[in-house]
Nucleic acid binder design. Structure first.
Lengths: 154, 154
DNA sequence: CTGAGTGCAAAAGATTTGCAGGCAC
DNA sequence: GTGCCTGCAAATCTTTTGCACTCAG
């Protein structure tokens, strides 16, 4: 019976998909449920593992294709790490709409930051070149000072 | 006879390699010549193509390994694009020592920028988290306003 | 001479794609 | 019913690695 009641994530994403002329398949809804169930930043492999853990079976190909769809329609943000790998995070309203990331290399924790001044400097730089910004990447990473990492509270 | 006279790039990189206890092999010197011959930002494939064009034969494996060495010893900067691919640029003194990039999606031109204010904001953010920055990525890209791109002067 | 470095080919990863079948609408 | 979407397996693309050979020091 439970399965007949669309959860609120389903309703949300269904609306977006439909408005884009895309089909609200079981796989897309399931994947969205998984993606939006946490604010963690995950790679494809981890998302697939988490899906399996919750007994949701989608093929790797479908996951790649679905994630592309979500990114394209702005339901998901793709984060490029400096090793060339990608992480994804959902764009639900609980999340700061626009932010950058700073990674602690000691504990792996990813923090989010946003700074208005940086944005306006970026805009000025782009404007000087007659460019209208469409994409931006801004990520920091580093190690804890004194080697003492108190980020994850274990 | 020409080959017996080391060019100035050779001398430069030889010194660095030796000081790091690494061997100054023909391949490394040749690759460095190619890398330092232009201020363009190139990917591995392009560098390999350019090497072949100049009749320098090194294996793809050696190119990857050599580039790693140069990056590790700060002769080369590795730039991560938001599609996860990498570009490389040499760190000769003709180049602004530390800078970020903004890409014009219309003409493919990559411009460099540096802003002190951004740096200090980054440092403040890191400090607040007890983090000492070791890596940073900051890249912008966009399209020309009005669709009129005058960057490359063709 | 000796082992760091190279070339080759095979392996490893990550992502994409062709195609036959399934299901959303 | 129609064709968009999925699953599978194969293909692709980039990068790494094992090993025998080479050459810089």
């Amino acid at each position: 019976m439970k399965n007949l009641i669309p959860c609120r994530f389903h309703v949300e994403v269904e609306a977006v998909l439909k408005s884009e002329g895309l089909r609200a398949t079981k796989q897309r809804l399931d994947i969205w449920d998984e993606l939006s169930s946490t604010d963690k930043h995950r790679d494809i492999e981890t998302i697939l593992r988490d899906l399996k853990k919750n007994k949701i079976n989608v093929s790797r190909a479908t996951l790649y294709r679905t994630i592309d769809v979500f990114v394209k329609h702005d339901l998901l943000t793709k984060i490029t790490l400096d090793n060339g790998r990608f992480l994804y995070e959902h764009n639900k309203k609980t999340i700061t709409p626009k932010h950058d990331h700073i990674l602690c290399e000691d504990c792996g924790e990813i923090f989010e930051f946003y700074d208005n001044t940086i944005s306006s400097i970026e805009n000025r730089i782009a404007e000087d070149l007659n460019i209208k910004l469409t994409k931006r990447v801004h990520q920091l990473s580093g190690k804890c000072i004194d080697g003492k990492c108190n980020h994850s509270r274990n």
